[in-house]
């Protein structure tokens, strides 16, 4: 019979509690994260919920063909990429500039106060923020349009205007999130060696030259890291935001993959079709995320664990 060495036995006894600790964590992840991955099979089925994942008729790639033949699939895909790409760019450029400007303020009390205020919207849910935005942007009573009217211009119905809608999404998303980026970048700036500033000061550089030649390059590694990691979000155009701000009037320019999955799957009960779209998104996303982590590990020495 196979016999374990005493040393192995002791090691097992010492380690056993740790495996037991992990057990209650492994179980919910297995059920709620891995089991749905098995459920991806329904993308290849005409799925009936009461028959379960494995007993619905198999239809091969029919669901995918169906999606590809829908008239608005490509539009939705384009919307998704367009909106998320603009969000990624604005979400980096704005906080980088803002943190450099904020860092130039001499009073630390002002710096802290501004910082605390601008990252407040980050913590509010899109339900709350869209409630606020719908009110503020309303064509009749909203403050923004009151201002526009005061300037003698026609009120704009921001949330019902096809052309404007994607930009409203980008602007409001940047508004919500730039404070968060600012905090990160300010921390990066704080990490730059003070001696660099001192010696450049002695060499006669003024504050603007310092900002361009010391601060900006100094924060570049973190900017590069965040830019790389955000690659993984190309197909995440922001379900919460779009779902709470859009309406059928702006579907053409505002509908994204996630909202499409929701409507096709949970409202129209075309489960297989919706799962097919979801699978497409997951697969493309993991390719991008994998690339992002690989790049940041290879060139920016970043690792997750």
């Amino acid at each position: 019979m196979f016999k374990l060495k005493p040393a192995t036995m002791t090691r097992f006894r010492v380690q056993l509690p740790m495996h037991l600790m992990l057990l209650p964590c492994v179980i919910p992840v297995l059920i709620f994260s891995y089991y749905p991955m098995v459920g991806i099979v329904i993308a290849f089925e005409r799925f009936f919920p009461n028959r379960g994942f494995f007993h619905s008729p198999f239809v091969g790639f029919k669901n995918f063909e169906y999606v590809l033949n829908l008239p608005n699939t490509y539009q939705v895909l384009w919307n998704t990429v367009f909106i998320s790409a603009m969000k990624i760019v604005a979400g980096i450029v704005v906080p980088v500039l803002f943190s450099i400007l904020l860092d130039l303020v001499r009073s630390s009390r002002v710096r802290r106060t501004v910082q605390t205020i601008v990252y407040m919207p980050y913590f509010l849910s899109w339900v709350i923020l869209s409630g606020i935005l719908i009110d503020v942007l309303s064509p009749n009573s909203g403050v923004v349009n009151q201002l526009i009217k005061m300037l003698g211009m026609e009120p704009v119905f921001f949330l019902a205007n096809e052309k404007l809608f994607p930009f409203v999404l980008v602007v409001t998303d940047t508004w919500k999130n730039f404070g968060y980026g600012t905090v990160i970048f300010l921390a990066a700036i704080a990490g730059i060696a003070p001696s660099l500033y001192e010696s450049s000061w002695i060499d006669g550089a003024n504050r603007f030259q310092q900002a361009i030649h010391i601060t900006l390059p100094g924060m570049l590694p973190i900017v590069a890291l965040i830019a790389t990691l955000s690659l993984g979000d190309v197909l995440n155009a922001g379900f919460d935001q779009v779902f709470n701000l859009y309406s059928p009037v702006v579907y053409r320019t505002g509908d994204i993959l996630d909202t499409l999955v929701y409507r096709v799957g949970l409202l129209n009960s075309q489960y297989g079709v919706a799962a097919a779209i979801g699978l497409f998104k997951s697969v493309v996303s993991i390719i991008f995320i994998g690339t992002a982590y690989w790049l940041s590990g290879r060139f920016l020495e970043y690792r997750v664990f």
Partner: peptide, 24 residues
């Protein structure tokens, strides 16, 4: 173990299978 947990951060089954699991 670490990969087991981390993998769920980068890949998921999508909304519909997730919903079906909770239903089941």
């Amino acid at each position: 173990y670490a990969w087991f947990f981390f993998f769920t951060m980068i890949f998921n089954g999508g909304l519909i299978p997730w919903y079906m699991v909770i239903k089941q």
